[in-house]
Simulated scan of single mutants.
Amino acid sequence: MDILTEALGSMRTGHPSSVRTDGRAPWGLRLPAVAGAGFHVVLHGTCWLVPLEDSPLSPIALSPGDVVFLRDGRGHILADHPATPPVLETAQRFDPGSPIGTVSLGGDGPLTSLLCGNYYLDQRRPHPLVRQLPEVVHLQTGQGRHPELSAAVQLLGAELENPRIGSDGIVPTLIDSLLLYILRAWFEAQPSASAEGWAAALADPAVAPALAAIHDDPAAAWSVESLAARAGLSRAAFSRRFTAFVGEPPMAYLTRWRMTTAARLLRESDAPLSAVADRAGYGSEFAFAKAFKREYGLAPGAYRREARAA
């Protein structure tokens, strides 16, 4: 079971939206907060990502091939220089021959081209794998670093510079895949000796198999003992190790993932409540409905109706 894909899939509420931004110095663009996670890919030129006044972050210099992922979609500024006054750009122009919108601004100086956008993620109940990420993930793909991510960036740049037959399908797919490439590159870049949290959990020979088992079959009658046996550890040692890396005890995470699985089924399928309860490991609709309402504050049927109306 690919835990990263499953965790992100449990939060996704729609396809990403994307805009190609071309700025000629001097230029500055103030971007409002988004409902999900933001991202930027520098296709050409250089610029700065400048946090807003209420952020503890420092300005970040960006170069060609750099990728930035903003975990919480916090508002920020992109500019040719941190001192350049920004404008608030809300109008995006859509060319029938292009799969993304375009924004052009600035003066007549050096050109910077970026792919900007956001992934629609449900931040009300973020998966702990995403919640443990830094607020800003900055990855540099030059000089042989992160070759798969670099290849995706190069492919995106080529399609946007020279759209051809098939580009309308290729570009959205590449943008969608970019999220997995970004997070995989970040997790794999964490030094093994100092890794902690989910970066360590996904590589740990004891915790990773237990997580995979929970994700592969959340309805199974898992216990701390049975998961510890898979991990090859005693019950107490496994529970301590799992809790230290994942951030919550094994049975708490199992309940979380069962409810997450049920919520996704309610949003994305027409499966009857009895089938959803069964997939979530509950023998009766009543017990499932009670557990679900405790987690989400709504009965399963009401949650499904609200999700469909959104």
Rank of each mutant, 00 (worst) to 15 (best):
Met1Tyr: 05
Ile3Tyr: 02
Glu6Ile: 08
Glu6His: 09
Arg12Trp: 04
Arg12Tyr: 03
Thr13Phe: 08
Thr13Lys: 04
Gly14Pro: 11
Thr21Trp: 11
Asp22Trp: 09
Ala25Glu: 13
Pro26Lys: 09
Pro26Ala: 14
Trp27Arg: 06
Trp27Asp: 09
Gly28Trp: 06
Gly28Ile: 02
Arg30Ile: 09
Leu31Ile: 05
Phe39Trp: 13
Val41Gln: 09
Val41Phe: 11
Leu43Asp: 04
Leu43Cys: 01
His44Val: 09
Gly45Asp: 00
Cys47His: 00
Leu52Ile: 03
Leu52Cys: 11
Pro56Gln: 04
Leu57Pro: 01
Ser58Val: 13
Ser58Gly: 13
Ala61Val: 07
Ser63Leu: 01
Asp66Tyr: 12
Val67Arg: 03
Arg71Ile: 11
Gly73Phe: 09
Ile77Tyr: 03
Leu78Pro: 02
His81Asn: 07
Ala83Val: 08
Pro86Thr: 01
Val87Asp: 11
Leu88Thr: 03
Leu88Ile: 14
Leu88Lys: 13
Glu89Thr: 15
Arg93Glu: 10
Phe94Tyr: 11
Asp95Ser: 13
Pro96Ala: 05
Ser98Ile: 02
Ile100Thr: 14
Thr102Gln: 05
Val103Ile: 11
Val103Pro: 12
Ser104Trp: 07
Ser104Ala: 06
Leu105Lys: 10
Pro110Trp: 00
Ser113Tyr: 01
Leu115Arg: 01
Tyr119Ser: 12
Tyr119Arg: 09
Pro126Met: 14
Pro128Tyr: 04
His138Asn: 02
His138Lys: 14
Gly142Phe: 05
Gly144Gln: 07
Pro147Lys: 11
Pro147Leu: 07
Glu148Tyr: 14
Ser150Ile: 05
Val153Ser: 12
Gly157Cys: 08
Ala158Glu: 12
Glu159Ser: 10
Glu161Lys: 01
Glu161Ser: 14
Pro163Ile: 05
Arg164Leu: 02
Arg164Pro: 01
Ile165Tyr: 13
Ile165Cys: 00
Ser167Thr: 07
Gly169Gln: 06
Leu174Ala: 01
Tyr181Arg: 12
Tyr181Glu: 12
Arg184Met: 06
Trp186Val: 03
Ala189His: 07
Ser192Val: 00
Ser194Lys: 00
Glu196Lys: 01
Gly197Glu: 08
Gly197Pro: 08
Ala200Arg: 02
Ala203Val: 10
Ala203Tyr: 00
Asp204Arg: 11
Asp204Cys: 03
Pro205Leu: 04
Ala208Thr: 09
His215Tyr: 12
Pro218Ala: 05
Ala219Tyr: 04
Trp222Cys: 03
Val224Glu: 12
Val224His: 12
Glu225Asp: 14
Leu227Val: 03
Gly232Phe: 06
Gly232Ile: 01
Arg235Met: 13
Thr243Ala: 10
Pro249His: 14
Met251Ile: 15
Tyr253Met: 00
Met259Trp: 08
Thr261Ser: 02
Glu268Tyr: 04
Ser274Val: 10
Val276Gly: 09
Ala277Gln: 04
Glu285Ser: 08
Phe288Lys: 04
Lys290Val: 10
Lys293His: 11
Tyr296Phe: 10
Gly297Thr: 13
Leu298Tyr: 13
Arg304Met: 03
Arg304Ala: 15
Arg304Val: 07
Arg305Ala: 12
